[in-house]
């Protein structure tokens, strides 16, 4: 295992990983699948349903995995996906 993986950061217990809530605007999606392919935590997958243009929009596979990196939002050419921080006060 590489060195950087078996050393744990000293403040690892204090850091809280943010949780993201993914919003998908299905009608805008053109099915390029960039968000599915380039999500670092593999949160999304292709759905079987069609939108009104005849493309398969993405679907959230496991929303608990989302760490709010926002890369799906940055790499979407059609402004069809965005993430907001999930309110975790009452537990997620």
């Amino acid at each position: 295992m590489p060195v950087r993986l078996w050393r744990k950061p000293l403040d690892a217990d204090k850091i809280k990983i943010p949780r993201g809530e993914i919003h998908i605007i299905k009608e805008r999606c053109k099915g390029c699948n960039f968000c599915i392919e380039f999500c670092p935590r593999e949160v999304l997958e292709e759905s079987e349903e069609f939108n009104e243009k005849g493309f398969h929009p993405p679907r959230v596979k496991d929303s608990n995995n989302c760490a709010l990196c926002g890369f799906c939002e940055a790499v979407c050419p059609d402004f069809a996906i965005f993430t907001v921080e999930k309110n975790c006060e009452g537990g997620c």
Binding site: R28, K30, C32, A74, V75, C76, P77, D78
Partner: peptide
Amino acid sequence: MIPHIWCDGCGNGIILNCYVR
């Protein structure tokens, strides 16, 4: 004007996205 006219898989939308961001 949205959705735009660019093909699926085209990167022009990403440039627009980065520009407005």
